[in-house]
């Protein structure tokens, strides 16, 4: 850009010179008001733009590696939520149990009773039940999802009733929680392993097309454990 030099009247120029002469400012020449000249020829060097691009890429990589996935719970740079999860003492079951107790009290306890013993000849027990305390929760998740009908033998006793399906009412997490609760409820003397939301989701997806309730016969054909 060109320095702009203002047209000055001779008188004004004289006045300006008079003012200017007195203002050496410790060796500084007098400054006219025009902005300093700026060269327009030289462009930003290409290598600088290239390096800038590289550094922008580095910035995204850095944020990806050290940003903790932008998760508010990750405080150590370089970690992800998974690292936190791995450190938490294995007490997620406690949380699942608490949630499972709530779900059980709302949806299950009317028939299976708060103590899990069911009603003789009407509703089978879940406390100490051989259907509940299997090695894996595959069958019982299916029962909760789709319900159950027809004759079934539990701990040697015959029952013949209908259990409602809860597929639409309960989320994967709710079902995992309630299954974990009834399988692992120490108050009832149960001590079987938990169910995870992932397991429930897998079974829910696998049985998505099923609209009828299970029968005991069908279920016995399904392995208790993957």
């Amino acid at each position: 850009m060109k320095p702009v030099s203002p047209a000055r009247s001779p008188a004004a120029a004289r006045a300006a010179r008079a003012a200017g002469n007195a203002t050496g400012a410790l060796g500084a020449p007098d400054l006219d008001w025009a902005p300093p000249a700026v060269g327009t020829g030289a462009t930003t060097p290409l290598w600088l733009v290239g390096l800038f691009g590289v550094m922008l890429y580095w910035a995204t990589m850095y944020l990806d590696r050290n940003g903790g996935g932008f998760n508010p719970l990750v405080f150590n740079q370089g970690e992800l939520l998974a690292d936190l999860e791995a450190r938490v003492p294995r007490s997620e079951a406690d949380a699942l149990l608490a949630q499972g107790r709530r779900v059980y009290n709302v949806y299950c306890s009317a028939c299976h009773q708060p103590n899990g013993r069911g009603t003789p000849n009407q509703f089978p027990p879940v406390a100490g039940s051989d259907w509940v305390l299997t090695e894996g929760p595959n069958r019982i998740i299916r029962i909760v999802l789709n319900g159950m009908q027809g004759p079934i033998t539990v701990n040697g006793n015959q029952y013949n009733n209908v259990m409602l399906p809860w597929r639409d009412q309960l989320s994967d997490e709710d079902i995992a929680a309630v299954v974990t609760f009834i399988r692992g409820n120490a108050e009832w003397g149960n001590n079987a392993g938990p169910a995870t939301p992932a397991q429930v989701k897998a079974i829910r997806d696998a049985t998505a097309s099923r609209s009828t309730s299970w029968t005991a016969q069908e279920l016995l054909g399904i392995p208790v454990k993957d």
Binding site: T44, L63, G69
Partner: peptide, 22 residues
């Protein structure tokens, strides 16, 4: 502070070097 805030600050300070160079 969550890790992303600290990482963003590092990135910001390093990229400011381009202005310093200019």
């Amino acid at each position: 502070f969550p890790a992303w805030m600290l990482s963003l600050a590092v990135v910001g300070n390093v990229l400011t070097l381009f202005a310093v160079y200019a």
